[in-house]
Amino acid sequence: MPRLADRRARIELLRAAEAAFTERGLAAARVEDITERAGVSKGAFYLHFQSKDDCFKQIVETFIARLADCVEPPPIVFEAERASVNEYFKRVLAHDLEVLEFCWQNRALLRMMLAGGGGTPYAYLIDEFAQRVARQVEGRVRYAIDIGLYRRDLEPSVIAALISGAFDRLVRKLIDAPSRPDIAAWAAQVLQLFTHGLLAPEVRAVADLSVMEAPPRSARQTADPPPASASSSERRRSKAKAT
């Protein structure tokens, strides 16, 4: 009778594999490194994954899905028509900060994917994701122009390229930082720089740029959450502890 896959063992293998890959790179990490960390046999590994590459691909796909959930906020965040200008920018800043925090917390895996370190062939997934984000940003810029929030002389595709490109470089700088930077201050500075040039004159006249300032350090989350391969229930428990 064939052995049945054990969900708990699979989770432990994914967690162990993520640690092994980020420490040693895809090429150098061995299946034995993963199974020793997870406390299971090689047979158990191949019960869940066809190969080491298959295991890494599942980690990457899970990470991309989580990043997509983080980048794509609930619609209310960007519904400026139902909020004051200042409340709108508070929401945008909170969203940007959440995305940057996620990237920092998963910096080792993200760094390996972006740099192609250790022979990983999945950097193209990040490029595809970046293109999708640029299209989303362009849609939001068009919406902001339509409702009179942004200047009407702007070309949405150009602004979207500038915003998404700037965040791409910011994330790369963030994940290469030797120690944790002031992420909230970074997010606030980027928002202030972009919105100062994008806002329609009548909106700029009533906008309070102080709402885009970083919150006090004591109010910021500093604890790292579970790794990208952690289950959704584990992530919810971690978030509850942080709050």
Rank of each mutant, 00 (worst) to 15 (best):
A123S: 15
G25P: 00
T243C: 09
H95S: 05
A83S: 14
L154T: 04
W186L: 11
R140H: 13
A187V: 00
I145Q: 05
Y122V: 08
L114S: 12
F167T: 07
P121F: 12
A166Q: 10
A207F: 15
L100N: 03
D69H: 12
L193S: 13
R8T: 09
S164C: 09
P178T: 08
N106G: 11
P215M: 09
T62R: 13
Y124A: 14
S233Y: 12
R236T: 09
R10D: 03
A16Y: 05
P156A: 09
V40A: 03
S84L: 01
P121D: 12
I34E: 00
M1L: 13
P121Q: 12
L174K: 01
L170I: 11
R37S: 02
Q58D: 06
Q136K: 14
A214V: 02
P73Y: 07
D176P: 00
V171Q: 00
R111M: 11
E138G: 06
V40C: 01
G119D: 07
L149G: 01
A108H: 14
A19G: 03
G197D: 09
R151G: 04
V60L: 01
R91I: 01
A28W: 07
C55G: 09
G39N: 12
Y150S: 08
E234I: 08
P215T: 10
Q136M: 14
F167E: 05
A80F: 08
R172P: 04
E12Y: 01
A160F: 03
L13S: 03
K52M: 15
F78H: 12
R10S: 03
D54E: 13
D153G: 14
P227C: 00
Q50S: 15
I11C: 04
T62Y: 01
F89G: 08
A9H: 00
R236E: 10
A223P: 01
S231M: 05
R7G: 02
A160L: 05
L93A: 01
L110T: 01
K173S: 10
R151P: 08
D146R: 12
C70M: 14
L209N: 07
A228V: 06
G43A: 15
Y150D: 07
T243I: 09
V203G: 07
E79A: 13
R132L: 14
G43L: 14
A83N: 10
R10A: 02
E213I: 05
Y88Q: 10
P178W: 07
F129P: 04
S231Y: 00
Q189P: 02
L209M: 15
Y88R: 10
E155G: 00
A144V: 00
G119E: 07
G117E: 14
L209W: 14
A80C: 12
G197Y: 10
L198M: 08
R204L: 15
I64H: 06
F129M: 11
S232C: 04
K42A: 15
A17L: 09
P181M: 02
T243S: 04
A123G: 14
A16D: 01
V40L: 05
